[in-house]
Design a protein around this nucleic acid. Structure first.
Length: 380
DNA sequence: AATCCCGCCAACCGCAGACAA
DNA sequence: GTTGTCTGCGGTTGGCGGGAT
C-alpha cells in the first residue's frame, strides 16, 4: 500500500533548526516526554514535521549525547562493530554510548571508510592488499580528528588526487564473504593488529606463544614473511631486507618496505624480479607438518621430504600452515553468541574492507601482477 | 581580497517493520 | 486478513565553513 506522509508538509519549516526551536522542543519533551512525534509539533507549536522533531531531539538535543571528537577507543570499537555489523548504524550506536547513529554514520563515511583504504585483489584467488592512503579525501578540518594542516599541504583541488602510502595491511575477509574469495589456508591464517604499538604493518602476526624456535625456523619476530628457508634463501633474505630498508637484522620484512620500494613502481620492472625473487626457495621439510589447509602439492612435497621451489605463493601457503601447528586456526572466528570479535589470543582482525567497494579509480593504487606475487593458491 | 572547491555534518527522504483499529 | 499510522533506520542531500588558488 502507499505510504502516507508522516505529516502535512505544506507550510512546515525545513532546514536548520534555530535556537528558539531547540528550546521549544527541549522544554516540551522535558515536560511531556518523548514519543507521539506526529502530534508533538502541533502541541508544542513548532512548524516542523514530527520526523524532523524526533531527529533533532535524538541527534542533537538529548542530554546524554557525547560531544567532541571520537576517541581512539571509540574508533577501534567502531571499526570492530562495523566489521561485524556492517552499516547497521543504530545497532552500532547502541554500543557507543552518547553517539547517535547519524553521527556514527557520518563519521564513518567521512573519516574511517575513505581516509585510508584502497585495495585491489590481484586476482580472484590472490591475496588482497590494503593500502592505507592519505589524500585529499582523507583530510579533515578542525571539526574532525585532524586538521588539514596535518596533511602538509599536499592537497590541491585542481590536481588529480595524490595517493600517499602510509601503510599496507593484508586484507582480511569478512565472516560473510571470506569463503567466497580467499584461499582457505591463507584466509584462515592472516590477521593483523592495526593498532600495533610499533605501528608497523606486517603480514601474518603470529602470537608470541606460537613462535617456532626450532632449528630451521626462519620466521621470527612474529613475521609471516620470514619463512622456514634454505641457506640460500637466508642469504637472499638478508639482502632483501637490506634492499627494502628493513631495520630488522633478524629477518623481519615489513610490507611497508616492500610496497614503498616495489609496488609503487609502475613500469613493471619489479625490484623483486630483478633480484630473481619471483622464484624463492622454500624448505618444505622445515616448513611444518602436513596440514589440511595446505595445498595438495605442498603436502605431497612435504611427505616426500622434497625441498620445493615456488613463487612467493609458497611463502604464504607454507607459512600459513604453521598456524595449524600453532593451533590458532580460529583466530578469525566471530563469536556470534557473545557478540564479540576478538578471541582470547587478541588477534585483532583488520576490519574494514569486506564490503568496501572502492571504485574511485583516482584513489586506487594500481598494483601490477608482475610487481609482486602474493598469490595464495597458485601452487596447488 | 575574491572566488573556487570540497569535506563535513545536520537534516531530509523513502522504505519497511510493528502495531492498532 | 486488510488497512492505516507511527516509528525507526539507512541512504542521500545540500548548506556551511575553511583551505587553496
Amino acid at each position: 500500500m502507499g505510504r502516507a506522509p508522516c505529516c502535512e508538509k505544506v507550510g512546515l519549516k525545513k532546514g536548520r533548526w534555530t535556537a528558539e526551536e531547540d528550546e521549544i522542543l527541549t522544554k516540551y519533551i522535558q515536560t511531556h516526554g518523548e514519543g507521539s512525534w506526529r502530534l508533538l509539533p502541533k502541541n508544542a507549536g513548532l512548524l516542523r514535521c514530527g520526523k524532523s522533531c524526533r531527529l533533532r531531539w535524538i541527534n542533537y538535543l538529548r542530554a546524554d549525547l557525547k560531544r567532541g571528537n571520537f576517541t581512539g577507543e571509540e574508533d577501534e570499537l567502531l571499526i570492530k562493530l562495523h566489521q561485524s555489523l556492517g552499516n547497521r548504524w543504530s545497532l552500532i550506536a547502541s554500543h557507543l554510548p552518547g553517539r547517535t547513529d547519524n553521527e556514527i554514520k557520518n563519521y564513518w563515511n567521512s573519516n574511517l571508510s575513505t581516509k585510508m583504504y584502497c585495495f585491489r585483489r590481484l586476482s580472484n584467488q590472490s591475496l588482497p592488499v590494503i593500502l592505507n592512503v592519505t589524500g585529499r579525501k582523507g583530510m579533515k578540518d578542525n571539526r574532525g580528528h585532524s586538521t588539514k594542516k596535518e596533511n602538509n599541504g599536499n592537497s590541491s583541488s585542481n590536481k588529480p588526487m595524490e595517493v600517499f602510502i602510509d601503510e599496507v595491511v593484508p586484507f582480511l575477509s569478512t565472516p560473510s564473504l571470506e569463503k567466497e574469495t580467499f584461499p582457505s589456508a591463507v584466509e584462515d591464517s592472516m590477521h593483523l593488529d592495526p593498532y600495533e604499538e610499533d605501528n608497523e604493518r606486517r603480514i601474518g602476526v603470529i602470537p608470541s606463544s606460537c613462535q617456532h624456535t626450532g632449528d630451521g625456523d626462519r620466521y621470527v619476530e612474529n613475521s609471516m614473511l620470514c619463512p622456514a628457508a634454505t641457506d640460500s634463501v637466508v642469504e637472499k633474505e638478508t639482502d632483501i631486507f637490506s634492499l627494502f630498508g628493513s631495520t630488522e637484522s633478524s629477518g623481519m620484512l615489513c610490507f611497508d618496505n616492500i610496497l614503498d620500494n616495489e609496488l609503487l613502481q609502475t613500469n613493471g620492472d619489479s625490484t623483486l624480479s630483478r633480484w630473481g625473487l619471483n622464484q624463492v626457495s622454500v624448505d618444505l621439510e622445515n616448513s611444518g607438518d602436513l596440514c589440511p589447509n595446505k595445498p595438495a602439492a605442498i603436502n605431497k612435497q612435504v611427505e616426500s621430504g622434497d625441498c620445493g621451489t615456488g613463487d612467493l605463493t609458497s611463502y604464504f601457503c607454507t607459512t600459513s600452515c604453521f598456524f595449524d601447528d600453532c593451533e590458532v586456526n580460529n583466530i578469525l572466528d566471530w563469536d556470534w553468541e557473545r557478540n564479540e570479535l576478538w578471541d582470547e589470543n587478541e588477534c585483532i582482525m583488520p576490519s574494514w574492507l569486506w564490503e568496501l567497494d572502492y571504485n574511485d579509480k583516482d584513489d586506487r593504487l594500481t598494483l601490477e601482477n608482475n610487481d609482486l606475487e602474493l598469490h595464495g593458491s597458485a601452487v596447488a
